[in-house]
Design a protein around this nucleic acid. Structure first.
Length: 304
DNA sequence: AAGATTGTTGCTTA
DNA sequence: TTAAGCAACAATCT
């Protein structure tokens, strides 16, 4: 369930840790997770380093030091990217006891990581391990195996990027452009906001939250929204995405940042996951329906 | 024990 | 072309 804010927090965290470090080892524990195949994947990464990490929508883009290829990572629903340079974590499989050095500092760091990640790494959901300079490792965990890692060249990257719509909090995300994008669609506003080719980065949580803040019923046809409503929606999307990044994302079940930390935005959620609870504005019970094929939370009194 | 679940793609139908 | 609905991907929880 990572959406734009969660992926952005991961991107920033990772940038501080792994740039310009030589990749010494690549372990693929689940072959369908990487494309095109395990052998090519490992070969393309080994010996290189990451020069930069970029993002479009929910897709992470790692620039490789050969200046030709890029590593794309999509976390889909349950993917996690966690970096640690704890030797114990790397050395010990989940059946092995941690081999702590015994130094107080190391023990504390290790216990802290276990606390945050919920266990030692790798765990049974670890699909890929990328190790740098024989020390720190980047773990790609993904319970449901929907996520992927993929190497592409510049041409493919360009093509993939072109399929994304405008992205909140960038200069292309203008009020005028947004109004036009909404007004010209006949499907529901919920479906439009979730459509990555129209607006990039919103998922189920921030879509429901933005619509609540804007007092718009998620079932409304996008084209039926007034300029005033769309303007409010525009402002609220910008606001909520910014706020969520500030709070390090929303942790519902699987999300954690690059260091395994949980996000703190959950406490600010107004409707998502609050089915049957009281609306914080009017006290009416929050309802959950199905719209655009997704569980959709809203206040039947505040949103119309 | 059937049904629901965060994201995305692709297929079918209208 | 556009939109809606659904299955699939896999694992877990209720």
């Amino acid at each position: 369930m990572p959406e734009l804010p969660e992926v952005e927090v991961i991107r920033r965290g990772l940038k501080n840790e792994i740039l310009n470090k030589r990749i010494s080892e690549v372990k693929v524990l689940s072959k369908n997770t990487v494309k095109p195949n395990s052998r090519t994947f490992a070969k393309e990464l080994k010996g290189k380093s990451f020069l930069d990490i970029d993002r479009i929508g929910k897709l992470l883009i790692f620039e490789l030091s050969d200046k030709i290829d890029f590593l794309l990572v999509h976390l889909k629903m349950t993917g996690q990217l966690i970096y640690t340079d704890q030797k114990e974590m790397i050395a010990g499989g989940h059946e092995t006891k941690p081999r702590s050095s015994g130094r107080l500092e190391d023990v504390l760091i290790e216990e802290d990581l276990i606390e945050r990640v919920g266990g030692r790494l790798p765990n049974k959901f670890t699909r890929v391990i990328i190790t740098f300079n024989k020390r720190g490792s980047l773990y790609f965990n993904d319970m449901r195996k929907f996520g992927y890692m993929r190497i592409v060249d510049e041409r493919e990257l360009k093509k993939i990027k072109s399929a994304f719509g405008m992205e909140p909090r960038t200069k292309e995300f203008t009020k005028e452009g947004f109004i036009k994008a909404i007004k010209t669609r006949n499907k529901s506003i919920k479906a439009v906001l979730l459509d990555q080719s129209i607006i990039a980065g919103l998922g189920n949580i921030y879509t429901d939250e933005s619509l609540f803040l804007s007092k718009v019923d998620p079932r409304r046809k996008a084209s039926s929204l007034t300029d005033k409503e769309i303007s409010a929606l525009y402002k609220n999307i910008e606001h909520i995405i910014g706020k969520a990044i500030e709070y390090k994302g929303t942790t519902f079940s699987d999300y954690s940042d690059a260091k395994g930390n949980k996000g703190n935005f959950s406490e600010l959620l107004q409707v998502y996951g609050r089915t049957g609870e009281k609306c914080k504005i009017c006290g009416t019970k929050i309802e959950k329906i199905r719209e655009a094929g997704r569980g959709t939370h809203f206040c039947p009194k505040c949103q119309f």
